[in-house]
């Protein structure tokens, strides 16, 4: 049976793409952020995932307001990154895993999640940049991937409680896959930041840290909050922590924290990073 090796959660700010393209990893502004990743690379070398399921949110590359799915799962042989309008270099296509995609789709719908399925899907910086951060030395992402996109563009968004349940069902779906493969779950976005409105630039390290701690020991803690309460505490885009909630919930049982990093600021954002594995 398939086995989930663990979950990685990370921020996905577009400026990371500019920093990678400009080789700014050792620049004083960027170093505290990029220094978070070598322990992740060492862990990936150890656990050697065969495939990654990536929970992320689209920012107006693949989906527009004409059709806005709450949960969308990719089922394509390949996913292309593309021009998002503000000039970060695109990354090479990501290989898909249609067999796992359809298994996940079938199992999630059986568990009463009404999904949108996508046999063609462009993936934006929220997908491409975290994978590049995890495998910086590979020209192309070395593992096939399955995208799971959560709407954080147009309200109502799914609640933290619902995203927790999605992640739990996703974990069960992966665990029921009759293939002896090692699966990594990735959640991208957050942490606290606000791009729009007079409160732009808002960050909240106290809440972010409480949230990161809760993911290890009490992952349902954040499900007590409505999305508007999460926005109040973390900013308009801080609500992207929903992807972290779902990724953590995919891990069965108790987890151990392998590594974490937290740094303010990159661009307008409080950047968080966690690696969690299933407790033995």
């Amino acid at each position: 049976m398939a086995k989930i090796v663990g979950a990685i959660t990370t921020s996905h700010v577009p400026a990371i793409g500019r920093a990678i393209a400009g080789k700014l990893q050792d620049d004083p502004y960027w170093k505290p952020f990029f220094d978070g990743f070598p322990p992740v690379h060492a862990w990936l070398d150890k656990v050697r995932p065969d495939v990654a399921v990536v929970l992320y949110n689209d920012h107006g590359l693949n989906f527009f307001l004409d059709k806005m799915p709450t949960f969308a799962v990719g089922a394509a042989p390949e996913y292309h990154n593309a021009d998002e309008g503000w000039g970060i270099p695109t990354l090479p296509p990501f290989k898909g895993h249609p067999e796992l995609s359809w298994h996940v789709i079938n199992e999630l719908v059986a568990r009463e999640f009404d999904l949108t399925t996508c046999q063609e899907m462009l993936v934006d910086h929220a997908y491409s940049l975290p994978l590049k951060l995890l495998w910086p030395n590979d020209e192309k992402c070395p593992v096939p991937t399955v995208p799971v996109c959560i709407n954080t563009v147009q309200y109502p968004l799914p609640s933290a409680k619902r995203c927790y349940k999605l992640g739990k069902a996703l974990g069960e779906a992966i665990g029921s896959w009759d293939k002896d493969l090692r699966v990594l779950v990735i959640g991208t976005g957050g942490l606290s930041h606000q791009l729009d409105g007079e409160r732009a630039g808002f960050v909240n390290p106290e809440f972010d840290k409480a949230f990161m701690d809760s993911l290890v020991s009490d992952p349902e803690w954040v499900t007590q909050f409505s999305n508007e309460q999460i926005v109040e505490k973390t900013g308009t885009q801080g609500v992207e922590l929903l992807m972290w909630v779902a990724a953590r919930a995919a891990l069965p049982g108790r987890v151990g924290l392998v590594h974490s990093n937290y740094h303010i600021p990159i661009s307008n954002t409080a950047a968080g990073l966690m690696v969690m594995e299933v407790a033995a």
Binding site: G60, L65, Y155, R199, N227, E228, V231
Partner: peptide, 30 residues
């Protein structure tokens, strides 16, 4: 629930209808 957050407004159905043409134009800038 409508929570008033200073300097902050979430993009809800009302704004999504109001802003459709503007957002559609900006989406074309991909």
């Amino acid at each position: 629930q409508k929570l008033e957050i200073p300097g902050t407004r979430v993009f809800d159905g009302e704004l999504a209808q109001k802003g459709y043409a503007l957002n559609k134009m900006c989406f074309s800038f991909n």
